[in-house]
Computed example of a mutant assay.
Amino acid sequence: MARSAATTVDAYLAELPPERRAVAERLRELIVANLPAGYVEAMNWGMPSYEVPLSRHPDTYNGQPLGYVAFAAQKNGYSLYLIGVSVDADREAELREAFARAGKKLDMGKACVRFKRLDDLPLPAIGRLIAAMPVDDFIAACERSRGR
C-alpha cells in the first residue's frame, strides 16, 4: 500500500484488503490496550500514529507531534514503528532479547520492525514495551536523544 491519504485510522483500515486489515486491526488493538495515558491516536505520515499531542509538548524539532508508536501496511509486509525503543537503549535491548527468547528473527531499522505475519512478532513483549513508557518519560528520552 502506498502512503495513505486517510484522515482517520478507521478510514485507513477500511482501505485495506480484508486479510491485511485483520493484521492492522490486531496491531491497533495491541497498541491501544497497552498505550499509557496521554498519547493520542492520529493519522500522521500516512499511517496510524500514537503520539504526544502538540498541546502537551509543542517544542518539537519539526513542529510535528512526537510519535511514540505507528504502524503501516507496506507493499510487501508491515512495519511497526517503536520510537520509544529507538530513544532508549535499555528498551531496545529488551526488544532484541524478546525476539531471541521467542526464537523469532528481528528485522529492524532504527525504530522500524518489519514483518510479514503477526506470528513473526513476540506480541506480549511488544505490548509490555509500549506500556512501559509514560508520556513524561518518552518526552525526556526524546529530549536526551536530541542533546537537550
Rank of each mutant, 00 (worst) to 15 (best):
Y61P: 12
L54M: 12
P48Q: 06
Y78F: 00
N76E: 14
R26L: 02
P48R: 07
N76Y: 06
E41M: 01
M47H: 12
Y78D: 09
Y78S: 00
L54Q: 11
S55V: 14
A73I: 05
G67N: 09
G46Q: 11
D59M: 10
N62D: 02
P36T: 05
G38L: 06
T60V: 08
N34V: 05
M47I: 07
A42M: 02
P36G: 05
I31A: 12
R56Q: 13
E29A: 11
A73W: 05
G77I: 01
S49A: 12
L66P: 03
P36A: 02
F71A: 06
F71D: 11
K75G: 04
A22Q: 11
A37H: 11
S55P: 15
P65Q: 03
A42T: 09
Q64M: 02
G38R: 01
Y61K: 15
L30A: 14
A42E: 06
V23Q: 07
A37D: 15
L30E: 15
E29D: 15
P58D: 10
L30G: 14
A22C: 04
A33V: 13
S49F: 12
L27V: 13
G67D: 05
N34D: 13
L35T: 13
P53H: 10
S55E: 15
F71N: 08
A73V: 10
L54E: 08
Y78C: 00
V23I: 11
E41N: 08
E41G: 05
F71L: 05
M43V: 03
Y78H: 02
E51P: 12
T60R: 06
N44R: 04
A33S: 14
P48M: 01
G38I: 10
A70R: 01
G38H: 04
K75V: 02
P48G: 04
M43H: 08
V23A: 05
Y78V: 00
P58C: 05
E25Q: 07
A37S: 10
Y50R: 10
V52E: 09
G63M: 03
L27K: 15
P36M: 02
V32M: 11
T60I: 09
V40L: 03
